[in-house]
């Protein structure tokens, strides 16, 4: 009668543990091969170079956990850099006005897409694809060229270093860290977060269980839009420019990071820590290729491609094992005997 449970690492944690193991192996290999690789600063630099991707991937995690997808994130990032640069330089707006405005705009874009997805029951893929073209196109209405940013606040965010026992990170990393912690808390300890998992598990059941499906679904796209805008701000700190060709394909990097981090594309299963690990995996691959110096940067893509395959297959196997072991319980089921009605 009691559900078969074991305290072996249950299926839920296997993907995350696999990613962790992969990261450890990659880092170990790098450290063996290149002397300077073992320096702790290398890992921190991975965060410095990928803080924006991490923030975007956090938003993507919410969306994918509900079983959706958000293709617009890269374009929203680009639009944010463009809008910030243009407002700061051409309109000479102060940073404290620009920042809330671009963040709000990103959230509103997400909110709009979420409403269309939910109320018109359209595939998230197609709605966010439209959002992707829209946001990318809007960049070029501002300018077709790159706009440099020389606002003092932006400069200070770009140049300052937060020092810590001989190591340093950029302020962006701290922002990303806060985002990760808040998001992990929301997913693990709030109703919104649990509803996200429930919807990813079974939207129909969630509705019948009386959960606010509409609100939750729209919320995740809003969160993703907000995270994209914040990622865009961090990218503009990093690049000190706004450009319509920034972050081309970043939506795919974000999806790759989330999936490598062990979150199921069909939704309902995954952890935010996995996404952090996924972003680190992507970052470490780039670092290794930079360290080597002889490898073409396209190797990054090749390795990511291979890893994606491996992880999707791994998830498939785990899922298959799960469904096979689940209903197999009533092996010793007694007879079902129903008397014929007419006797």
């Amino acid at each position: 009668m009691s559900a078969r449970s074991s305290y072996l690492p249950s299926g839920r944690y296997v993907p995350v543990l696999a990613t962790l193991a992969l990261l450890a192996v990659m880092y170990g290999a790098g450290a063996l091969r290149y002397e300077a690789f073992g320096d702790g600063q290398v890992i921190l630099n991975v965060f410095v170079d990928n803080a924006f991707l991490l923030v975007v991937a956090v938003g993507m995690t919410f969306v994918i956990l509900t079983g959706g997808i958000d293709l617009s994130v890269g374009s929203v990032v680009a639009l944010t850099t463009m809008l910030s640069a243009s407002l700061l330089k051409d309109q000479a707006w102060p940073p404290y006005a620009v920042l809330p405005l671009v963040l709000l705009l990103g959230a509103l874009l997400g909110l709009g897409m979420g409403c269309v997805i939910h109320y018109f029951e359209i595939q998230p893929f197609i709605v966010t694809l439209a959002g992707m073209f829209l946001a990318r196109g809007l960049c070029y209405t501002i300018s077709t060229a790159s706009i440099p940013i020389d606002d003092p606040f932006w400069r200070s965010m770009a140049d300052s270093k937060v020092r810590l026992a001989g190591y340093f990170v950029s302020p962006s990393v701290l922002v990303a860290l806060v985002v990760v912690l808040v998001a992990a808390y929301v997913l693990g300890y709030t109703r919104l977060g649990r509803n996200v998992y429930a919807i990813g598990g079974s939207p129909g059941s969630a509705l019948l269980m009386g959960l606010p499906v509409a609100r939750t679904r729209i919320a995740v796209y809003t969160i993703s839009g907000f995270c994209s805008a914040l990622g865009g701000v961090l990218l503009s700190f990093y690049m000190l420019s706004g450009y319509g060709l920034h972050a081309v394909g970043m939506e795919l990097d974000a999806i790759a990071a989330v999936v490598i981090g062990g979150t199921l594309l069909t939704g309902g299963s995954g952890y935010l820590v996995g996404t952090v690990l996924g972003v680190m995996v992507l970052g470490v691959i780039q670092t290794i290729i930079t360290f080597d110096g002889t490898l073409s940067s396209w190797w990054t893509k090749i390795v990511i491609g291979v890893l994606l395959f491996v992880f999707i297959v791994l998830q498939r196997l785990i899922a298959a094992r799960g469904t096979r072991s689940a209903p197999a319980a009533p092996e010793s089921a007694p007879l079902t005997l129903t008397a014929p009605p007419a006797r």
Binding site: R191, R194, Y197, A198, S202, S205, L208, M209, L211, A326
Partner: peptide, 22 residues
């Protein structure tokens, strides 16, 4: 309670019982 179990298989038993009024 319906014929088809309308719960979320990916959540724990406890959550399925109490989700929405945790």
């Amino acid at each position: 309670v319906y014929q088809e179990v309308n719960l979320c298989a990916n959540l724990s038993v406890a959550e399925n019982i109490l989700i929405g009024r945790e």
